[in-house]
Each structure stands twice: as C-alpha cells, then as structure tokens.
Write a protein that binds this DNA or RNA. Structure first.
Lengths: 256, 256
DNA sequence: GGCGGCTATTGGTTAGACCATACTTCCACC
DNA sequence: GGTGGAAGTATGGTCTAACCAATAGCCGCC
C-alpha cells in the first residue's frame, strides 16, 4: 500500500535562480492531496472499502504535516469519497459517494441559490417525474406494484384516522422513482422532495382536502402502471403534479 | 457581526456524577461549527457576499482552536457554501453554491459509484434532455435560436476542416439545456456531459462519420424549435440521443 | 471457557509559532 | 501635485509537538 507519492508542486519553494521557471506552486497542499487521492479512486487504484494509511503515515508519504493531511481528508469526506472512523483499526475508508450525500449538495443548491425559484424547482421535478413514467411502466414488477398499492391503502387509512402527512405523499413519489430501477434518476429526484415538503406543508393547511384527492390520484396512477398504460399513467401523473405546481406558484405569487 | 455563539455540545466534558445523564457529546467540533454556520446561511442570517470573521476571531467565538475552525471552513468550502481568500481583506465569504461545484459532486457519483452503469446514465440523460424539449420550444427566443444555428454553422465548418470535436457536440446540448431558462435543470444536466464525452470519444474513432450525421440532426432540431413544433423536435432529439445511447450500450457490451 | 480490564493504534483537539499573500498607507521622487 | 514603490498590517497556509478520546484486540483472571 504505497501508492501515494510525495505531493509535488506545493512546497512553496524559495528557489532562487537555479531550476528556473519551474513550479508556480499555486494550489493549497491539502487540495493537491485531495486531487491525488481522488485520481487514485477514479483510476480504480483505490476501491470502495479499502483503507487509506493512517494520518501519520500519510504525513510521511506526502511530506506534509498532519494538519494538512487532515484538511484533505475533511474535503474528501465532505465529498463523500471517504469516511473516517476513530479508534484502533480506524482511519479513512474509501466509500462510493452515497446518493444521500450528493443529494444534500443538490438540495443545498436548490434551496440556497437565489437564482433558483420555487417554480423552477417544481418544473424540474415535473420533467423528471414525468420522464420516468414510461420506464416505470416497463420495469415495475408485480411485487413493486403491489407495494405501491399497499402504500395507497396505508394512506387511505391514515386519512381516515386523520394522520396523513405530506411525508407519506413524498414517500410514494420516491418509491415510484425507485421503480425506474435507475440509480442515477433516483439520486437526481431525491433532493427535490425535502424543499417541496416544506413548501407544501403550509399549502396543506390551506387545503386539507388535498391529501385525499392526492391519494386517489396516486391509486389511479398505480392502476395505469399495472395496466402498462403509458399514456394514461403519464396523464394522471401530469395532472397530479401540475395541481401541486399550481399551488406552489400561488404561494410564491402570494409571497410577492 | 457577533452571530456565532460558542459551540455547545462538543467540549467532551469529564463531568462526573453531577449534571447526570445529560450530554452525550457525539459530534466532531468541526462538524458542529459547520452545522451552525450552515443553519445561519439557510435562515438567511448570513447572505451571499458577506464575510465571516477571520479564523482567529472565529476561534474565540466558538471557543475552539484554529485547526478546528479551519477544518470546518474546508468542509463548508467543499460544499460550495463559502470561498476562502488569502491576504488582507481575505477570509471566508459566503457564496451561493455554484452549479459547477454541485455538478462535480453529481459527476463523481455518476462516474465512481459502481452501482451506476453507463446505460443508466444514458437513460437519465435521455429523460432530462427529452423532458426539456417542450420547455425549450416554448421559451427559446429568436436570439437563442439564431445562436444555435450559428453553432451548427461552426460545426459544419469544423467538419469540413476536419477539426470537429465531441466537445462541440456537448456544447450544443448544454446550450440547448440553457434555453429552458431553468437553473435547476441546467445544474442537473451539466454533469452528464463529461462522462458522456469520455465514453464517446472512443466511439467516434470507430465511426468518424458520426459527427456529420450528428450536426445534421442538431440543425433539424433547431428548425423544429424555431417552428415551435414540439412533437417534431422531440422526435428528432429522441432519435439523435438514442443513436448515441445504442453506441454506449454497444461499448459496454463490448467491454463485457 | 467466558468475561473484564489492559494496551496499542488511531483519529480529535490544542497551543504557539512562522511564512506567504495581498491590501493600505504613506513617503519620496519626478 | 501626481505617481510609483516601499513598508506595514491583516489574514490564510503550514508546521511542530503534545495530549486526549475512542476502539479493537489481546491477555490474564476467575
């Protein structure tokens, strides 16, 4: 396990005239380490589950102090490329970036970027959720469909009991997305739901009957999927989502 | 500017029997700082462009050492929430997460996650790029369309000169995505192109005529957009993308 | 044979120091 | 009087050396 070499261009050398015009030494040392390890992962020389040398080891190999190594590890950790465990046999373990962590980044962007409006977010969600309908109709297994119907039953029961929440609706949509059996799509769609939730919870107070209609639409959607009826499923989902979208637009208008 | 308070639960107190059963003190101090600052940003108490206190100041306010503060800043920086500048008037400035940085995360996930196959990536891209066609047809301005046509002209010229590259094709698709005038969609679609490029460059060597056909299809797509003909535009784009998709599938089959 | 404590490994944090960088101010020279 | 450069200063980047905290594994005792 002696892959990483000493970090090259960062030693901020005071080199005077000899060895002329060589290293501009721009980056941070920690960033250079991040780049190096990231590349090793991308090249497959470090694979998921593998353990990096201990921090003190890495210091020697890279020729930097522990502080610098630790900053590099924090960056890699923030990017979801490694996870760090303490204690004996602890250390930095290569992990495949989890969709959760990436989702957090996307979510931050959707929520915090002032150039992104709620309407845009809703629109993007619509593109994704409608786009997967044909795929879901094709790939959903009988068990998948049974699962969705079970969720509808639960939702009905919850409505009867007055305990229906927006989270249950979000769960339904997330589950549908999973039925595309496509990790990339699942990852992209996940982050949309939390911002959507916060934006919709208030709306539900204004229209408490909405949950009931929503669940009815959910069930009709599942039936269309069961029948592998792509146009019908698309139509139902579109109406369902656009009802939501119009609500968001109303709210963002009301705020203005 | 005295918003941040001392970081609470992390001082690993050795409290014996008094103050019983209180603080389990789980997290890392740096993570607690990150959470605190992130929350301030989300609440709008810190807004883009604003400058955090200097590292030494933050040490005092949070009651931790500089190393810890710096690790927190690295994490925030990795998440695109702040950027750090050196020199006088330097420091950590709040930034709105850039789509570039988020895109990098998504790209990492698409590239490195072994559970995501090239076929899935292609499929997700197809969903997005087809989904935006109606929006593009609706929103593209005359100037937008003229710009696309200019790109086609350039591409034709490049093909004649033998200098056409896959990057030019990717540029076309990115530009189309921008015409949806929806930042969320643009952010989601961007990261797909680099993995796609690497996957396609080899393919182009196997079929050098592909560029020519591709540009011809691009132009037909632009014409359909100009005519606001959604079905036609969708059909052209679908054929164009599926030709690409089949190529990726061939390649991933060939590898197996 | 099982259980509890000891020990070694490893990350987490601290303190203080020094260097590199970039903005500011001011002075000297033209 | 204006302009260019030099000194000053604030701030991030890095290093060193040390100690604390958590954990896995071993060893000895019962």
């Amino acid at each position: 396990m002696n892959r990483p070499g000493p970090v090259p261009a960062t030693n901020t050398a005071h080199r005077d005239t000899d060895d002329l015009f060589n290293p501009v030494s721009l980056a941070r040392a920690s960033q250079a380490i991040v780049d190096q390890i990231r590349e090793l992962i991308q090249d497959g020389q470090l694979t998921a589950g593998e353990r990096l040398p201990s921090e003190r080891d890495l210091c020697d190999r890279f020729g930097v102090s522990r502080v610098t190594v630790r900053e590099a590890l924090r960056i890699l950790e923030a990017g979801g490329l490694v996870t760090v465990k303490v204690g004996a046999r602890g250390g930095a373990y290569i992990t495949t970036p989890s969709s959760d962590r990436i989702g957090r980044g996307i979510e931050d962007y959707l929520t915090m970027s002032p150039s992104i409006t709620a309407v845009e977010v809703t629109e993007a969600r619509l593109v994704l959720e409608l786009g997967i309908v044909p795929i879901v109709c094709e790939r959903a297994t009988e068990a998948d469909i049974a699962g969705l119907l079970a969720m509808c039953d639960e939702a009905d029961a919850a409505i009867a009991a007055g305990t229906y929440t927006m989270e249950m609706s979000a769960d339904f949509h997330i589950t549908v997305a999973r039925l595309a059996h496509n990790g990339a799509i699942e990852m992209l769609l996940g982050p949309f739901h939390r911002p959507m939730l916060t934006s919709l919870k208030a709306a539900r107070e204004a229209a408490p009957a909405m949950g009931k209609v929503g669940v009815k639409e959910h069930r009709r959607f599942v039936h269309a999927v069961r029948d592998r009826d792509v146009p019908k499923a698309t139509e139902v989902m579109k109406a369902h989502l656009e009802r939501t979208a119009s609500r968001v637009q109303q709210r963002s208008k009301a705020k203005t």
